[in-house]
């Protein structure tokens, strides 16, 4: 039916036409989607409203089932947002999805820009290092209002073609997604099952009562995207079923425990490893949760073990995570 690649693409770009086809194929009643999907949808909305950008969207899982949760979370989030019916939320939601898109494109070194542009039916060609868009296609995309750098007057325009660098093209696509999404909000919510309305209302309460605060002891979810790059890498390779070395597994567990992940959840997570050994894992995790507190090592230390590939230079991973979690990362 749909290939692995299509699933992964759709999970990253859940507004794409591939994603829409997948959604159409798998769902006719959104009130019956999995709890995970509902959680993810809620996560997207809270993230977008509080501008935290924390939910895992740099999706490195491979199981189609998990990917499907991510794909479905987006249309469900749109439904919730439309029921909540708040202008500010519309804008923040659209901004969040646009930012996520741009980050995903950037993280992949822009290798997916062409696939995405193709999927979105944007007319373009390439010439040398430039992406070439016909003037009238460029003008159809609403992306100039906020930012003069996308005004036509500031483009390399020649004989009816606009020349953009790949990076700028990625920004162009994400701006396009922003305005397209904003234009389609709110979507029609007539005749939806009342359970969806109740769920949306509870999200509304979370947002507007402003009681929703992320704190380490109450935390249910962890936010891998706020991890320092090296820990994020370890986390996602474990999730995707790679075997980590003993030391890598140990430090990851230390880090996860330190940021509030429950013992049981950590053990669950380690079950992803092909050579998972229950006794060994329990022993180590118990040790970590025993009175003697371990501290997750700095990037420099991880690099000594060959575990940090990026030069992320994080001295204290927990402080880093907290900062990422609690700073309101406002877009410029």
């Amino acid at each position: 039916m749909f290939s692995q690649e299509e699933f992964q693409f759709a999970a990253k770009y859940p507004f794409s036409s591939v994603a829409r086809d997948i959604v159409k194929y798998y769902v006719d009643d959104f009130s019956k989607v999995s709890l995970e999907t509902k959680d993810l949808a809620k996560g997207i909305i809270l993230d977008s409203y509080f501008r935290t950008f924390l939910s895992p969207y740099d999706i490195k899982v491979y199981s189609k089932e998990l990917l499907l949760d991510h794909i479905l979370a987006y249309p469900l989030a749109k439904i919730y947002v439309s029921i909540i019916a708040n202008e500010e939320l519309y804008t923040r939601f659209a901004k969040y999805i646009a930012k996520r898109t741009y980050d995903n494109l950037t993280n992949n070194n822009f290798s997916e820009v062409f696939d995405l542009a193709y999927d979105l039916n944007i007319e373009f060609s390439t010439k040398n290092d430039f992406v070439v868009i016909p003037l009238f296609s460029f003008l159809k995309v609403d992306c100039f209002d906020n930012d003069n750098s996308f005004k036509l007057v500031n483009q390399r325009l020649d004989a009816g073609n606009v020349y953009l660098s790949r990076e700028k093209f990625a920004k162009f696509l994400s701006n396009h997604i922003f305005s397209e999404l904003l234009n389609t909000l709110p979507c029609s919510v007539d005749g939806l099952p009342s359970s969806l309305k109740e769920e949306a209302n509870s999200i509304r309460n979370d947002i507007f009562s402003r009681k929703y605060k992320i704190s380490f002891n109450k935390i249910q979810n962890i936010y891998p995207n706020a991890f320092p790059a090296c820990y994020r890498e370890l986390y996602f390779s474990l999730l995707s079923g790679s075997n980590l070395t003993h030391i890598a597994r140990f430090y990851l567990a230390v880090f996860l425990a330190a940021v509030g992940m429950k013992k049981e959840s950590i053990i669950e997570l380690f079950k992803n490893a092909p050579n998972y050994n229950e006794t060994k894992t329990k022993y180590h995790v118990d040790r970590i949760f025993s009175k003697k507190r371990f501290l997750p090592p700095s990037c420099a230390k991880l690099r000594e073990y060959g575990l940090c590939k990026d030069n992320c230079n994080v001295k204290n991973p927990i402080v880093y995570y907290k900062k990422m979690l609690f700073t309101d990362k406002k877009q410029k």
Binding site: L139, K140, D142, F144, D145, N148, S149, K151, L152, V153, N154, L157
Partner: peptide, 21 residues
Amino acid sequence: KQNARVELVDYLTAHFLDTKS
């Protein structure tokens, strides 16, 4: 659309031209 027409005339009149960009 109207805003696209604005883009065209801004181009011709160098309105909002940003030399750094």
